[in-house]
Design a protein around this nucleic acid. Sequence first.
DNA 1: TCAAAAGTGTTCATCTTACACCCATGG
DNA 2: CCATGGGTGTAAGATGAACACTTTTGA
Lengths: 232, 232
Amino acid sequence: MAKKKFTYEYERPAVTTDCVVFGLDEDDLKILLIQRDIKPYEGQWALPGGFIKMGESVDDCAKRELHEETGLNNIYLEQLYTFGSPNRDPREQVITIAYFALVNLIDHRPQAATDARNAAWFAQDELPSLAFDHKEILAKAKQRLKGKLKYEPIGFELLPKKFTLTQMQHLYEIILETKIDKRNFRKKLLKLDILIETNEVEQDVARRAAKLYKFDQKKYNKLTKQGINFEI
Amino acid sequence: MAKKKFTYEYERPAVTTDCVVFGLDEDDLKILLIQRDIKPYEGQWALPGGFIKMGESVDDCAKRELHEETGLNNIYLEQLYTFGSPNRDPREQVITIAYFALVNLIDHRPQAATDARNAAWFAQDELPSLAFDHKEILAKAKQRLKGKLKYEPIGFELLPKKFTLTQMQHLYEIILETKIDKRNFRKKLLKLDILIETNEVEQDVARRAAKLYKFDQKKYNKLTKQGINFEI
DNA sequence: TCAAAAGTGTTCATCTTACACCCATGG
DNA sequence: CCATGGGTGTAAGATGAACACTTTTGA
């Protein structure tokens, strides 16, 4: 195949997107990484991502790369920050627009990637060393996740559609790294008025089964438009 | 001069930075714009910004372009968002990393730019139509400014070194677009414990002169490290 | 002496926090 | 019948919101 060449009057940096994908396991906030199969950093773990294609938006690039490398689709994805130190890639100047993503790990168990790469979930305390400046990107993402969770009910993105209040509380405790009083947490959460109580309860538990709740997206949108705050 | 050509295996987008610079006038939040002297959008007003150079970080690009086009230096500057729709520039695909900046307008009166371009401050209700998607960028910046002001005392960046509590209150009222009770505002602001009361008062006012205060950056940094909240 | 803004406290309602026991269920 | 987590209320303290008058100063 003949390599097509593209020529510009001025030198240009390469542009990529990278995604920090968070998933909540039973007791851990996990990160989705892929093992690189090319240089540089061959064999090392890295955030899923890759080069932008012409004609696609930056958002679309993030979605596409995430899908290609991890099989994930239709998940919560928002732009995080753009990293542009000239030496962050040893080959040449590469600017990366980082995204952060939340998935429900129950529905997205560790899976083979669609292409040849190895993808796996890692807990915070089992993280391998990461390629490029991905450690820094991850740090920024964790900071953003913590900050966001306090003011927006994004926790729903990390849980199954139907969840118990205790699951939600654990989520807050894990991400914010604090203990929370059960009664106070429930009062606050229910007062936000964005939960729908279902008639169902947990299954297959060796104790009293907890009620399942759903997130009321419509009500949430309505309240958001009214400028209601969702601080927890 | 011979044009130097740069050739790549894959097509690359161009990369620019743009800055939304806010300044506070007596009664208005103003935006700094420059008038374009080249196509496209020649003659139209736009955010200051331009193409990244090789070897410079994205942050440095924003600082450099801001300085070259407006003469501003050493001002509060933070990354805002990256805009990457493929059609935002009619010439070709251009990704722009937008920044938002705050300056004290008293010290940075409308000035001629250092290069040939025309730079001017515009109030919200006198805004000309903007080049590219700069209207959208501006909207995002305003939203960010509002959001940030509630949780971080960045108002200081928009005021002179020494300021009165009433000036600060006006700043909040203008940016948040609400009226604020004077006594409650003062109580809250002083309780943050990041103001130094000077012995000086306003000069040349035809009424009782107000005390001047300074922002205590050291104390603020210390409190920030302790994780104190600065919600107003 | 007047105009204009500076400066200052209290009350009431709301929210936050701390805290402990009974209940339902499955094994 | 026991172990496990589910589910619930109250009181005390802290915080937020509403509200009006006196003081200082220069013109």
